[in-house]
């Protein structure tokens, strides 16, 4: 899934859609709240066997029950957190590694720079999902594969961005004066360059988060990531899709959650990115 490149392009090709952004920001806020704190208001234990299997929606179970008699509403409320947090973790790891490489490449150039560009080329020759699948063949399924895989996919892009931003800053007066003052490379990178490139990196991280969430959802759907009994939206779609004719709400509810969350993050992220680029211009 090249959601990343797609997002990268989206920022440049943005469509004006001001009124709706506010609405989607609200939706996104609600979905984020559901994902992070939904389990607190869940009426039942998301793993509890609380009824017969395949109950249709009713007063006791608003979205019915799944194949093991678990409350679908409770599972949906609890099913977003892990994927969201894993996406955050993957991006944090990727940003940390990517920024260090990018800073060094931008400031020092040379070998790091060349290796970085080649690594990026290699990565672009490989669909992200395929890469993580191949990793999963080796490491076995689990959340470690998700974080490692998604981080690996993002590192070269982040490094490239950090490198470009660093190049722009490195020749400015205050960096040069720091060099003249005789400060060490690490200090210059940390004190002078990092604060200046941070806004660019943070804005980029937001878009990358949306991409990471989608890849993680895809892998969970394929059964490579989060394992039962942990509730997860994508896993719910996968494990309930053979029962879709018996109890469609087991699929409708998590599908709606992923769709609303992904759309709102994308639209809000785009709006923010556009505002930044307009502000710069």
């Amino acid at each position: 899934m090249s959601a990343l490149d797609r997002h990268g392009v989206e920022r440049r090709t943005g469509v004006s859609w001001r009124g709706a952004v506010g609405v989607w920001a609200v939706v996104g806020g609600i979905m984020l709240a559901v994902a992070l704190a939904g389990s607190l208001v869940a009426p039942y234990d998301p793993a509890g066997l609380v009824g017969k299997s395949f109950l249709l929606p009713g007063p006791d179970h608003w979205f019915g029950t799944d194949s093991l008699g678990r409350d679908v509403l409770s599972r949906v409320l609890a099913g977003g957190r892990t994927a969201v947090l894993l996406a955050v973790a993957a991006i944090v790891v990727a940003e940390a590694v990517g920024c260090v490489i990018g800073l060094l490449a931008g400031y020092r150039g040379g070998l790091v720079d060349a290796v970085l560009m080649r690594a990026n080329d290699v990565l672009l020759a490989f669909p992200a999902l395929l890469l993580v699948l191949v990793l999963a063949a080796g490491l076995g399924p689990g959340t470690v594969v998700l974080v490692v895989g998604v981080a690996v996919v993002n590192i070269p892009g982040i490094a490239r961005l950090a490198r470009a931003a660093t190049l722009g800053v490195a020749t400015t007066g205050y960096v040069e004066s720091a060099v003249v003052r005789g400060e060490g490379t690490a200090a210059i990178l940390r004190r002078e360059i990092l604060p200046n490139i941070a806004p660019t990196i943070v804005a980029d991280a937001g878009v990358r988060f949306a991409g990471a969430f989608l890849i993680i959802a895809g892998l969970n759907f394929l059964g490579i990531g989060i394992q039962p009994p942990a509730p997860d939206w994508a896993t719910m779609i996968a494990e309930n899709r053979s029962y879709i004719t018996l109890q469609p709400w087991t699929v409708i509810a998590p599908t709606a959650c992923i769709a609303l969350f992904a759309i709102s993050v994308n639209i809000v992220g785009e709006a923010v990115a556009r505002r930044r680029s307009r502000g710069r211009a």
């Binding site: 793993a47 509890g48 066997l49 194949s67 093991l68 039962p228 009994p229």
Partner: peptide
């Protein structure tokens, strides 16, 4: 039997 295992864990 992941389903049965999940149910057993609850029971």
């Amino acid at each position: 039997y992941p389903d049965a295992a999940q149910a057993f864990a609850q029971q």
